[in-house]
Design a protein around this nucleic acid. Structure first.
Lengths: 220, 220
DNA sequence: TGTGTTTGGTGACTTGGTCACAGACGCGCT
DNA sequence: AGCGCGTCTGTGACCAAGTCACCAAACACA
């Protein structure tokens, strides 16, 4: 990735003026982060805003009992707003972000971020848009766990994970983490799906047999 | 409330320069909003940022089945960030904000807000701080509903609502809405608290008899 | 004093979460 | 091949929480 052209990967930033683009590329650096790195978490405040060039960051919460729930994911072309919040407000995180894959990212120091927000309406739009999207994601999570039945949520997740293919590589434990429930509950639910002939299972693999039925349940 | 001095009510804004203060007071107006007004909600995008001078706004989500859950409250001295998000990003709300009391608020038009963010580091700090706090609130809600037992959450809520006094004026239905559960569940849980001699109930009223026991449960 | 509305109580049942195990499978090692 | 070990999955018993269908008590007010 050349230092000069990463900006084009961010639709929201493509309309920046030439000077500001120059300023941004001059005062930031592209870094690589290995998979499974904890990017931020309780007690680990960062000193820079990250813009993801490639890879995904998983943001999750863990309970004292060890149960986990995925809050949202940051994909390539997006920014880590949580980092931003703390960048500006000096608050401590209450969730953690983990590199789900190897990452390539642009690191923007605090003062550069502040100047960009001040000088560019486009950059402001970009930042507030990112916030807005995370808020929306979180609202969706709350709605799901508070009101939606688990079999429906699991069906949705299976459809999401099996885009086009009919094989999913994952464990019951990971699915439980996605939905914020316990492994046993997933096991039972998948056993029921299997009994109905919707899926077939092997260790670490789920085969989709009847996508239509699963989809029908998912959109209830 | 005089037009000139409302700014002092916002700690985050008290350090604004004299010019910007003038600009802000000149280009905003103080409005009154009656209790139970729906300030924003799905399909009701606002054209201005609200800063609360007095009263509280309840932000909640409602399921198709009619169950509700309170996400957070905006108190006097705070701003409605959700409004801000949509102000800047033009996105549609997926939660609704309701005036829990009569409100007095400062309404700031979109373009004034944008200029303030551009021109004032203090205002930026104020806005990002507000976002940061809401994010934190939402994380807490997710954690609560996903991982915490209901009896503990109810005990916490009782302690919170009964600050100093030993009487709470509320209905089982409202408590259910606070915690995102069903009325019957609250009724049963309160019946159990009563059986233990921790509370006494009458229609629309709960008397705290043994605050220490409730507190002990709350902080598990 | 009656009548409608709001609030609370209850039983039966379903769904979801917890706990304590026991197998089953994959994989490296000798 | 056979062994050992860690990870993954299956299961039963039990508890907690949500749903459904009603009913009863308290209140509001004509």
């Amino acid at each position: 990735m050349s230092h000069a052209d990463w900006i084009m990967q961010f639709p929201g930033l493509s309309r920046l003026s030439t000077e500001l683009r120059q300023y941004l590329t001059d005062n930031s650096r592209v870094i690589d982060i290995p998979v499974d790195t904890v990017i931020f978490g309780p007690g680990k405040p960062p000193e820079q805003l990250l813009l993801l060039l490639s890879g995904t960051v998983r943001v999750q919460k863990t309970s004292e009992t060890g149960r986990e729930i995925v809050l949202y994911r940051v994909h390539a072309g997006e920014s880590c707003v949580l980092t931003t919040a703390c960048l500006m407000a000096y608050e401590d995180y209450s969730a953690e972000g983990i590199a789900e894959t190897g990452l390539q990212a642009v690191a923007i120091p605090r003062d550069v971020f502040d100047r960009m927000v001040a000088d560019s309406p486009e950059f402001r739009q970009f930042v507030f848009m990112a916030y807005s999207r995370r808020m929306t994601d979180l609202f969706a999570v709350v709605e799901e766990i508070a009101f939606r039945r688990l079999d429906i949520r699991l069906a949705q997740k299976l459809i999401e994970l099996s885009s086009e293919q009919h094989t999913i590589q994952t464990t019951h434990q990971k699915l439980a983490g996605e939905l914020g429930t316990a492994r046993e509950v997933i096991s039972r639910q998948l056993a029921e799906f299997q009994r109905r002939g919707w899926i077939e299972q092997a260790r670490g693999v789920i085969h989709i047999l009847d996508r239509d039925q699963i989809k029908a349940l998912a959109k209830q």
